[in-house]
Nucleic acid binder design. Structure first.
Lengths: 254, 254
DNA sequence: CGGCTAGTTGACCAGCTTCAAGTATTGTGG
DNA sequence: CCACAATACTTGAAGCTGGTCAACTAGCCG
């Protein structure tokens, strides 16, 4: 199956071939943009949801004084908003990071597909759950992880997400972002991004050259980044999961 | 209407009395907890969604080495997860910040209510949209706002959210958090929280005493915090909104 | 009264930013 | 295919923001 949306959603529910076709049908006409263009700008009234078909995009917000923060990176197969509703206006912008092709999906159609197939419904809700969990993890990164941990965590997360749509191999993936882009994602200056990358390189954890990231020791990178993939909710077989419940601190204060 | 959930959702759609009753019915039995208890712990398999009825709660994550980050604050009327799905296991914890009472809501029931009333459906989706927008704004805060701006932004947001459920007045609200709690929300040390509060106090913007926050100049506080309430999507009357579209960098946007 | 928690203040330090200069790499027009 | 410009990356030095450590104060409750 070449459609990345379907590819990803298969991790969230057991889709039938008919489900897959219906999902492909949601995303009728594809639109193409060059790198660094806006898909939707703050203030726009969107008329459809955005589904990324190829390339990398992002959600970002520009502060009055020019400071810009990339809130979220979107990869092929990502639906940029909750599927059932259209914001009345955009409170942020959606932009391409690389050349991108995307489709417009109407919330009514997505809801209808969910109504008619419980598997599609489950898959779409699962997708929202994962997106929301990634958002949580991002807050934890910003609040409590050092610059190096944050970078490592991002790279681990991208690797795991690209794996969902078959766009990486075991050893690494194509990373089309500049160090400046990475800074806008991680809330760091481009100078410090450079230093952090040097650090990961000289620790022998990664190579990043010619827009290709190689991860030499995935477990080690995960360890230094405090990356626990549990939040991606990938185990359909959930009986295996060990509740990591520590002896509770509960009774007293935390 | 005393039910805070209904109170809030009325901002997202024109609910009928019947809708309101149905929503109240979703949250049958209330459970009460003291402050600083866990509602759900990381690793738990939840059997229902959590709906806060009174008191303040939070989503938090504890890192291996003891660092803790509060990801999100929940106020009365807040549903702690997307309404249509139950995570297979918790990848984070939900805890009370004050004494709390909450109800358990089954996703099937919420979905059924949405299926049977388009207004309820719209309201629930609107709520998800707002929660997700607050999450985005949090990332922007962490990435690009200074400690003082972050604090001011949080206070403005809490004020606006409490207004949705009628738990504040024009001048301020009861803020039951310690400076340490605020630090865990904002990713700051308690020492620095103290200094930031001093700064806001001596600028004459706020008073915080005996767990009551008074905002002396709301507009000024919003300005120094770069707080723009647009992301809360409160204007049902959306024709009024000025698209803040700057001269576009762009030709091909939709 | 004594012990606990919350808040406050000072001194010092680390992590990250900013500024600046210089080196690769990539893209473009002749 | 080269020359040159633009963009991306790299490195050093200095400065600021916010963290850590420590001590002290104020309120609360048994």
């Amino acid at each position: 199956m070449t459609n990345p949306f379907v590819h990803k959603l298969r991790h969230g529910a057991q889709l039938t071939d008919e489900d897959a076709e219906r999902l492909v049908g949601l995303a009728a006409s594809a639109i193409t943009l060059r790198a660094h263009q806006d898909i939707l700008m703050e203030g726009d009234r969107p008329r459809a949801l955005t589904l990324i078909l190829s390339g990398w995009a992002c959600r970002y917000k520009q502060l009055g004084d020019g400071r810009r923060q990339i809130i979220e990176i979107f990869l092929p197969g990502d639906l940029c908003e909750p599927y059932g509703i259209l914001p009345r206006f955009m409170d942020h912008s959606l932009g391409s990071l690389t050349p991108v092709s995307f489709a417009r999906v109407r919330p009514e159609d997505a809801r209808a597909a969910a109504r008619e197939s419980p598997r599609i419904e489950e898959a779409l809700w699962w997708d929202m759950l994962v997106q929301s969990a990634m958002q949580h993890e991002r807050v934890v990164s910003f609040g409590r992880r050092s610059a190096t941990e944050r970078m490592g965590h991002l790279l681990c997360e991208l690797h795991a997400r690209l794996a969902l749509v078959g766009l990486c191999d075991e050893a690494g993936f194509a990373l089309p972002l500049t160090q400046n882009d990475l800074g806008e994602v991680l809330g760091l200056s481009n100078v410090h991004v450079n230093r952090v990358l040097q650090e990961l390189r000289s620790a022998g954890l990664i190579t990043l050259r010619e827009r290709r990231l190689t991860i030499h020791d995935r477990e080690a990178l995960r360890t230094v980044s405090l990356f626990d993939p549990g939040y991606l909710h990938l185990d359909l077989d959930h009986e295996k999961r060990e509740p990591k419940r520590v002896a509770s601190a509960l009774t007293g204060s935390w």
